[in-house]
């Protein structure tokens, strides 16, 4: 598929940002295959990864050839949030990342679905899928936070460790007509309510430190992203044109 040239350049830039978020998180979640704590979770994470991959394909097709974009771009050309590229860590880290991201994605897509813009068709569809991702993350946050001493401590640590990556979600993205301030307020209220119910503290500290010099949306990524990308692209680069 070639780029949809009826879309203007800023729309395509925004599609790349949202598409990369979905693609990279899908790949991270896929890394749990064969390692999830229980079979049901293995299936759940695989299903969430599949939803995200479907969204990524639609979004990247708005920009250009989806395979080329996924497999042949250099690290600096990816526009995903640093949050989604963070390693899986333990299960609590994965759930914290899911909580932060799916809450953001759900609120964002709800807004894009209600608008008349170029993202409305995909957002109207994906928002219903992401509602289940968000529910999944919220239920696990409650279960781990309000669970054993061990699960609570791990969940607390995970929420704290990823906190500094959450500010980037609300930075303006050219081509995305959303009110970042309102989105951030809604996100903070929702995440705070979930953490409260899970008897977890809302992390302290800045939500901005990690990306002060520009971040994922500008093509600046954290160390582990390069390794993830090498693994993701290895097969395709070694066997150009192979289909799957």
């Amino acid at each position: 598929m070639t780029a949809d040239m009826t879309l203007d350049a800023t729309t395509r830039t925004a599609a790349l940002a949202l598409g990369d978020d979905a693609l990279v998180l899908s790949h991270r979640l896929g890394e749990w295959a064969g390692h999830a704590p229980v079979l049901e979770e293995e299936v759940a994470l695989a299903n969430i990864a599949l939803d995200l991959l479907g969204q990524a394909r639609v979004l990247l097709s708005m920009v250009g050839d989806e395979d080329e974009l996924a497999y042949l771009r250099e690290e600096r050309a990816f526009r995903n949030l640093q949050l989604v590229e963070q390693p899986n860590g333990d299960f609590a880290h994965t759930i914290a990342r899911q909580l932060y991201f799916s809450t953001y994605q759900h609120l964002l897509y709800a807004e894009l679905a209600a608008a008349e813009g170029p993202f409305a068709p995909l957002a109207a569809k994906a928002v219903k899928e992401v509602a289940y991702h968000r529910d999944h993350a919220e239920q696990w946050t409650l279960r781990l936070g309000d669970g054993t001493d061990e699960s609570r401590e791990r969940m607390r640590r995970a929420c704290g460790a990823l906190w500094r990556f959450t500010g980037e979600m609300f930075q303006p993205v050219a081509g995305l007509d959303v009110d970042g301030t309102a989105l951030e307020a809604a996100w903070l209220a929702s995440v705070t309510a979930v953490l409260d119910r899970a008897t977890l503290p809302v992390p302290e500290g800045p939500r901005t430190g990690a990306w002060a010099a520009g971040a994922g949306r500008q093509g600046l990524h954290t160390e582990s992203f390069g390794r993830m990308l090498a693994e993701m692209q290895h097969l395709h680069r070694s066997h150009p044109g192979a289909s799957w």
Partner: peptide, 10 residues
């Protein structure tokens, strides 16, 4: 309404 929010803890 465009987006039903009927899930989750909140």
């Amino acid at each position: 309404g465009p987006v039903p929010l009927t899930l989750g803890t909140t």
